[in-house]
């Protein structure tokens, strides 16, 4: 399984997203570029120009029509995928760390940074998924995080809840319509920030990654921890694969915490765990800096990782991956088949 190395960014990657068909990869980086690539050959389709700060986050709507991006230039921007046109810009008082469309692409949430006297917030914008439509200027909803700032957030199934991960290691569940706080549960170790939150395909459960070196699988409805994956390094990202029951974790000692910069010490590997049995299955090496983001192809054919080293590595799974099965899984498959 030889990965495709996408070397279009000049600085650390911050987020990677596949579109729903799994044929396009969107990547954002601190070099103020949004790139879109063909997933099957790594050819760059284009870039989106306009941001004037490090870009922290990107998301694509379910119909692959528009993308949203959030940046340290305190804006959320909406882009036409096809033409690269900047359709709309919303301004905020602080940097935007995370954006995410809900399941039908009609709403967009943004997580803003806590800085310069401004509290961290989660804002919700109404979106019309149409490149020609006039977008609404006003925020539909603002949730203020006065306890501990939100670092990541996402929409559950039916856009019923907004789930946010906080800097203090807790997870909050807000009502998707009113923005009322329903629960706030300490999930990860206290004051170990939650660094990523990604959804299962049907958005009924999600996976978190945390600096406390663990990743957890949690239900959206009652925030019950289903599984815990223990790694030996602080984690920056976690994703759930489809077709096969795995999760992929990425992380590594942050550059400032490493006394000696050896690849061995940094543990800059993507780690595969079995989603149900919580066992570590394997690791994929390659990056020479911490992995900042991992994303799984929604069609289950591969995954991509983006590192502090500025590279995106796109991997297509090979036969061994699809053949691998626990004895109990095989047993079940034989019974069904």
């Amino acid at each position: 399984m030889r990965p495709i190395l996408l070397s279009g960014h000049e600085r650390a990657l911050t987020q990677i997203k596949y579109n729903r068909d799994g044929d396009l990869i969107f990547s954002v980086s601190k070099d103020q570029q949004i790139c879109v690539w063909f997933a099957h050959n790594g050819e760059r389709l284009g870039t989106y120009h306009g941001h004037v700060g490090a870009i922290w986050t990107v998301d694509v709507d379910p119909t692959s029509t528009i993308i949203a991006s959030g940046s340290a230039d305190n804006t959320i921007r909406l882009w036409d995928i096809k033409t690269g046109k900047n359709l709309k810009t919303w301004e905020f008082p602080t940097a935007v760390k995370r954006v995410e469309f809900n399941e039908d692409g009609t709403r967009l949430l943004g997580v803003t940074e806590k800085r310069m006297g401004h509290l961290g917030t989660i804002v919700v914008l109404d979106i019309t998924v149409d490149v020609d439509a006039e977008q609404n200027d006003e925020k539909a909803l603002t949730i203020v995080c006065d306890e501990s700032k939100a670092t990541v957030a996402g929409w559950s199934y039916l856009s019923k809840y907004i789930i946010a991960g906080h800097e203090d290691g807790s997870i909050s569940q807000y009502d998707g319509k009113t923005g009322d706080l329903i629960y706030n549960i300490p999930i990860h170790e206290l004051n170990m920030a939650i660094t990523d939150l990604q959804w299962s395909p049907d958005r009924t459960y999600f996976i978190t990654a945390s600096k406390d070196k663990t990743s957890k699988l949690i239900t959206a409805h009652d925030l019950e921890v289903l599984k815990t994956y223990v790694a030996d390094t602080p984690l920056n990202s976690a994703t759930i694969t489809t077709k096969k029951d795995f999760v992929v974790l990425g992380g590594g000692q942050a550059a400032m915490d490493v006394t000696r910069t050896s690849a061995r010490q940094g543990k800059f590997e993507a780690r595969f765990y079995h989603k149900i049995f919580e066992d570590e299955i394997g690791r994929v090496r390659g990056h020479f800096g911490p992995l900042n983001t991992v994303a799984a192809d929604p069609t289950g054919k591969g995954y991509a990782s983006g590192g502090e080293d500025g590279y995106v590595r796109v991997h297509q799974f090979d036969k061994g991956y699809f053949d691998f099965m626990y004895e109990v899984e095989r047993e079940r498959q034989n019974r069904l088949g």
Binding site: Y157, L158, D202, T204, Y205, T219, H221, L226, I276, F277, Y326, E327, V328, E329, E331, R332
Partner: peptide, 25 residues
């Protein structure tokens, strides 16, 4: 193996119930 069988069973049962709930909703 017994343990894994149980875990897998629990997971599948949970998925089934969640999928049914969401479909109903």
């Amino acid at each position: 193996v017994e343990d894994r069988r149980r875990i897998l069973q629990e997971w599948l049962a949970w998925r089934e119930s969640v999928e049914a709930d969401v479909a109903e909703e």
